[in-house]
Design a binder for these strands. Structure first.
Length: 256
DNA sequence: ATGGCAGGAAGCTCCTGA
């Protein structure tokens, strides 16, 4: 089973990129973030016509998440239970024995912003919920745009980013809190190219100059990590015409 | 130190993203 995560930065604009990917080299599950589309306008029919199922939780202009899958979904949950939040940032679903949580973690804007406080509160609630999910579902994948670069090697210019949003101590502690539950940053289970990133600013020709950060992640419970064969970043999709500013990440967890 | 680019909604400019 291949599971992927991709921040599309508007599904409407990225629809042909998605359908092309699903046509040529489809993962079994694709988790999308920043769909930026209200549920009544979600292009479900186009995705279903391509032979996939899809569940979604969106809103106009901001946020929005969806899970596209070969197999039908069960036990769909929108949002973090018991955490009041009008922003559509989480959707979870079950595939066979595997549970998939798809998250668009708040950006934070800057460390002195109210949005940063919201981000940390949000991550606290997210972590408490995932602790329960792990007990219920030993085969758990937590994927999405975390808006956190876990380590210096995940940032093209660690000096410039030091203490900034995405890289601050509190954010990295929150990320380590997720790992503390037993989740594994699957990307680092394997040898990876130097300067592996998942997001590059649209400005300054950042993609071509390799100026990126690794903020999109696939975290796996021990039971799934054991079956993980490879994880890679699909830079080709970031290199297309009119791309999202994020590249997808895909993990193969079909077992040895 | 600042702005650069892109998307969306509104409406001919502003907010947000990371």
């Amino acid at each position: 089973m291949k599971i992927a995560t991709w921040n599309v930065n508007s599904l409407k604009v990225r629809m042909l990129h998605l359908l092309g990917w699903l046509d040529t080299d489809p993962p079994d599950i694709v988790c999308l973030q920043e769909t930026k589309i209200d549920d009544p306008k979600f292009p479900a029919a186009q995705i279903e016509d391509a032979g996939f199922h899809v569940v979604y939780s969106g809103q106009k202009t901001y946020n929005g998440v969806a899970i596209v899958s070969r197999e039908p979904v069960a036990e769909t949950v929108n949002g973090i239970p018991d955490f009041a939040d009008e922003q559509k940032r989480v959707i979870a679903a079950t595939f066979g024995s595997a549970r998939v949580v798809n998250a668009y973690v708040p950006n934070g804007q800057s460390v002195v912003s109210d949005k940063y406080r919201y981000k940390l509160d949000w991550l606290g609630a997210f972590t408490r919920w995932l602790e329960q999910e792990l007990e219920r579902y030993p085969e758990l994948a937590v994927v999405g745009d975390f808006n956190i670069a876990p380590e210096s090697r995940d940032v093209h210019d660690p000096k410039a980013w030091e203490g900034q949003v995405l890289c601050s101590d509190a954010e990295r502690e929150a990320f380590n809190g997720l790992l503390g539950l037993g989740l594994v940053d699957s990307f680092r289970l394997f040898e990876q190219p130097e300067k592996s990133y998942t997001w590059w600013d649209y400005r300054l020709n950042a993609f071509k100059r390799g100026m990126g950060v690794r903020i999109d992640h696939i975290l796996l419970s021990p039971a799934l990590a054991k079956r993980c064969n490879s994880v890679s970043i699909l830079k080709d999709i970031r290199a297309q015409e009119r791309p999202s500013d994020h590249a997808p990440v895909v993990a193969d967890i079909s077992g040895k």
